[in-house]
Amino acid sequence: MRFGVVVFPGTWSDCDFHYVISEVIRQPVKYVWHRERNLADLDCVVLPGGFSYGDYLRAGAVAGRSPVVEALPEFVAGGGVVLGSCNGFQILCEAGLLPGALMRNECLQYRCQSTHLLVENAETPFTRALRPGQVLTMPISHGEGKYHADPETLRTLRAHKQVVFRYATAAGEVTRAANPNGSVENIAGIVNEDGTVLGLMPHPERAAESAMGGTDGLQIFHSLLGSLVEDGAFLKR
């Protein structure tokens, strides 16, 4: 499975993703500069965390209109999958590839901590190695991760099972106390209607080796590889 890790000016998790893909799951991977429009040789594009373009104007706003992001709808239509973590999630929302928006944490603090995530949809290419109700542990690191969507959008998200992860307790209870940033309905990660674009605030690449304090993030990578092996459904290229 060929991965491309997008690098914007100000991206900071690109090396972590590259390392996990090349050294932990041992798949072909290359960096993709933000001006690139040709993604034809890739199966999965990763938008890593960081502060693309300094997050000027709004987090992910400028990156959301960059050449590589403008090429994503065609890439996805052609069978590619896109994983956006942290700033990558903000960029996907700003670009309109995912519904809703991310705004300043309700607590006003930058939150860098471990979180528990309740798996709600295990039928996406990113989560099929998991089961619904399972609880994963992954770190977050952001100041603007409060997910917002209007009631109509939330209804659509529910109807299409687009909410993939919610912030929860270690026992899997979705509570206000377990919500680190004030996200509506504790939403931590969503997919598009087809399930081929995932955005999440937590960092799976920072929970991919036991030396990092956990390996739950690897499940997302393993799910992607499993999807490829089992049916290749999302890989038409």
């Binding site: 709004r58 706003a61 400028v62 209109r65 929302c93 700003e94 809703g100 928006a101 917002h148 969507a149």
Partner: peptide
């Protein structure tokens, strides 16, 4: 509409 404002928010 295209950049300066995020009309969702």
């Amino acid at each position: 509409r295209r950049l300066l404002a995020n009309t969702i928010l």
